[in-house]
């Protein structure tokens, strides 16, 4: 069944949509949009991969094909040896999916009731269910929330609840769509810690899409960038920064307004807003020596490191030509 023995295999995967648009009173224009335009990659069991790209790049279309919701228009696709489009319900027992902005929990009922439904829908053996629920409750800190109606949970609590719901049936792979969107800093780091733990102890394969580069940085050893329906990059995060010429920004707050900091090696002064100065440094370099050098020479009040966002990295990566903001998809008129 499998060619390479990998857990997820895509070979020239394509998805073409026909879009009809009204152009006049009666005239209609029909055109084909290639949302996914020949993507190939493999993911091994136990990998944790970031899948990123601008809005409309084809990320969610790919995820929908990987889960069997959408039928590919071309190419080959196997997940755990299964063709998702043909055996969607069989595959469903082996995968877990969390959409960041769409909860699968029951709005008016306590969290516990939603889990009970998952228990029965997925036919999870009782002891396995109890064990998994206990583990999720423990690691995701859901103990006090189990009997609270979902509508009363905060966004972060609901996200944790959703992740637990996706893990009760021991999925071999977890697809996460923006798992940290809208969460506060503490909830974000807690979420990341949980995912790392899950991957390390259970060997769950994780594929996550995100706009937050910190997610990728802290979780994924490998990142794939997709734009205009094509795979643009596949490798480590450091390599992405190099490929994109990405720079990170060290923002330092000084005690008072001072002349630009230009004498720290490895940093480039960008601008100053009063006592706050912005210093750029290569994304692949560590911030630590830089911070030490600044702290030694200047009266420091506070500092932070800003990650370049995905859009700007990708924009730089392709010379800004495809910018990714105006023309999202390659379109061919028919």
């Amino acid at each position: 069944m499998s060619l390479t023995g990998s857990f997820i295999e895509l070979d020239g995967l394509e998805k073409t949509f026909t879009v009809r648009r009204r152009t006049g009173l009666l005239r209609r224009e029909k055109r084909e949009v290639r949302a996914v335009d020949g993507i190939s990659f493999t993911v091994d069991r136990g990998e944790m991969v970031g899948y990123i790209g601008p809005n409309g790049a084809g990320k969610s279309t790919t995820i929908k094909m990987l889960t069997g919701i959408l039928t590919p228009s071309g190419g080959r696709l196997r997940v755990a040896g299964i063709d998702p489009a043909r055996e969607r319900t069989r595959l469903a027992r082996r995968i877990g999916v969390v959409f960041g902005q769409r909860t699968t929990l029951w709005w008016d009922l306590p969290l516990r009731d939603s889990y009970r439904l998952v228990h029965r829908m997925y036919r999870i053996p009782d002891d396995r269910y109890r064990e998994n629920l206990a583990r999720c409750v423990d690691l995701l800190d859901l103990g006090d929330l189990l009997d609270v109606p979902v509508r009363q949970l905060s966004l972060g609590q609901r996200m944790r609840g959703d992740i637990a719901a996706a893990l009760l049936h021991d999925p071999e792979v977890l697809y996460l769509d923006e798992p940290t969107i809208g969460l506060d800093v503490v909830s974000k780091s807690r979420m990341r810690e949980f995912l790392r733990e899950l991957n390390a102890t259970r060997g769950t394969t994780v594929l996550l899409t995100t706009h937050d580069l910190t997610d990728i940085e802290q979780l994924c050893s490998r990142v794939m960038v997709i734009d205009h329906g094509r795979l643009m990059y596949d490798g480590g995060l450091a390599g992405l920064h190099e490929a994109g010429g990405g720079e990170r920004m060290l923002v330092v707050d000084l005690e008072r307004e001072l002349p630009p900091i230009e004498d720290v090696p490895g940093a480039r002064f960008v601008r100053a807003d009063g006592p706050r100065q912005h210093l750029a440094f290569p994304a692949s370099a560590s911030a630590a020596p830089l911070v030490a050098a600044v702290a030694a020479a200047y009266p420091l009040v506070d500092l932070s490191v800003r990650e370049p966002d995905i859009e700007s990295v990708i924009a730089k990566m392709y010379g800004g030509a495809s910018g990714g903001t105006h023309e999202r998809r390659r379109e061919s008129l028919r």
């Binding site: 929908k64 889960t67 069997g68 919701i69 969607r88 319900t89 069989r90 469903a92 027992r93 995968i95 999916v97 959409f99 769409r102 699968t104 829908m121 997925y122």
Partner: peptide, 13 residues
């Protein structure tokens, strides 16, 4: 609203 997709993710008809 796209919530039909969630139904399609479950191992039931």
């Amino acid at each position: 609203d796209g919530s039909l997709d969630v139904f399609l993710l479950r191992p039931v008809p």
